[in-house]
């Protein structure tokens, strides 16, 4: 799709706003609608849009497979690790109250960190899925030649 001038320009204009909106949904999740899952998907859709316009190989230069692979595991690790940290403070697993000086601040921080983990994993998995599908299509074309 690299020869479609209009799509390239509009895509270039839109992608920063999509990323910004994803971040807003991520970090504003406890005040408005949204959270890690939605933010991860929105964040991933920006990269998918980039890959659709400029090609998967160009997108993989920006977000290499290794980073994605680490991201998939890191998100789950952040979520599980938060639970372990609260266990170290003597609270039940995934009880965020002891993470800060007051329980309510602890809840805020805990939810914030946990949602961040969710967002990282969801975004990485979505981009990986798209990359794998798209690359497989490219592979088969190579095989046919």
């Amino acid at each position: 799709m690299s020869h479609h001038f209009v799509i390239r320009v509009v895509g270039k204009l839109l992608i920063p706003f999509i990323l910004l909106f994803g971040l807003y949904v991520q970090f504003h999740g406890d005040f408005g609608p949204g959270g890690g899952f939605q933010a991860g998907v929105i964040f991933a859709s920006a990269f998918v849009l980039y890959a659709l316009i400029y090609g998967v190989d160009k997108a993989r230069e920006i977000l290499p497979d290794d980073v994605l692979r680490v991201g998939i595991a890191l998100g789950v690790l952040i979520f599980g690790g938060t639970g372990v940290v609260s266990m170290l403070w003597g609270a039940p697993y995934l009880d965020y109250s002891p993470l800060a000086s007051t329980p309510s601040a602890g809840q805020h921080i805990g939810i914030f960190i946990v949602e961040l983990g969710v967002g990282i994993t969801v975004a990485s998995v979505m981009v990986t899925l798209f990359n794998l599908f798209a690359r497989r299509g490219g592979d088969d074309e190579l095989d046919a030649e």
Partner: peptide, 24 residues
């Protein structure tokens, strides 16, 4: 209890933390 304005997020991440961890 959580002083989080969005009840959905509070339930998802705090009350139902195990569920959400499972989903992830």
């Amino acid at each position: 209890k959580t002083t989080v304005p969005n009840v959905v997020t509070a339930v998802l991440a705090s009350y139902r933390g195990y569920d959400t961890l499972g989903e992830v």
